[in-house]
Amino acid sequence: MPEIVKKTILNRDVCRFEIMAPRIAEKRKAGQFVIIRLHEHGERIPLTIADADPERGTITLIVQGVGKTTRELNNMKAGDKIADVVGPLGRPTHIENFGHSVVVGGGLGTAVMYPIARALKDAGNRVTFILGARTRSLLILEDELKGFCDEVKICTDDGSYGKKGFVTDLLKEMIEEGEKIDFVIGAGPIPMMKALAETTRPHGIKTVASLNPIMVDGTGMCGACRVLVGEETKFACVDGPEFDAHQVDFDLLWKRNRAYIKQEKIALERYLKMQQGATF
């Protein structure tokens, strides 16, 4: 069972884990993910491989505690073991030197975009990263991104840090100021990705979104991750997770991601109760 070798708390909701998975560390490329299962009763959930150290044999996962499984993971510590980690899954991001690439990370989408920004930079792109979050305490990876991006633009919904507003406002500004943008790629909440697509569509800028549908196996066997791209149904785990944002049916994705909303609430409440029971 893969061991957590290091855990860092990034903010109230987000933790970074380095996990021993030598084969995946060696093989993974930007844009790929793993599926993990915490224990015998656990669910299989996908997480982006944010980084890897092939020499030490570790992969880095950045996890936002939104429901039962991600919170349970965020409560684990270095030395703990995870039942299953499988990957690298999904298609790697198509990386080339586009010229000026704008990478957009909303909230946790930043973790998903981080390795991609790096790969774009390594391929010779000029990289502008637009980093957004609801509020300052939820911003992640600012220093790391500033370390290699040509520019990092920051915004928060409440104006507590950087510009007040949405990532798409910053992107719109750049476009309006006549900046030459050759490629946009982003990840974040579904409404953000939809807005991103609408921001670039009129300007014909090639735009890719990394989608986050519900998955089970992650190998194309079940079809849980169906998304509609153009007129075609795709399995995001094998055909994606990245797709042409101008073609994606974001409304469908949003609806499908709410399929288990009732059960997720039950699971989370039960987990929180059990935890309280354990502490008091």
Partner: peptide, 24 residues
Amino acid sequence: NEYLTRVNLMKAYMFPDYDTPLIE
């Protein structure tokens, strides 16, 4: 495949004792 995997492999019929859900 998805339905049977959720139930047989992931034991969704024992939700919430097992974490994998099935819609009602």
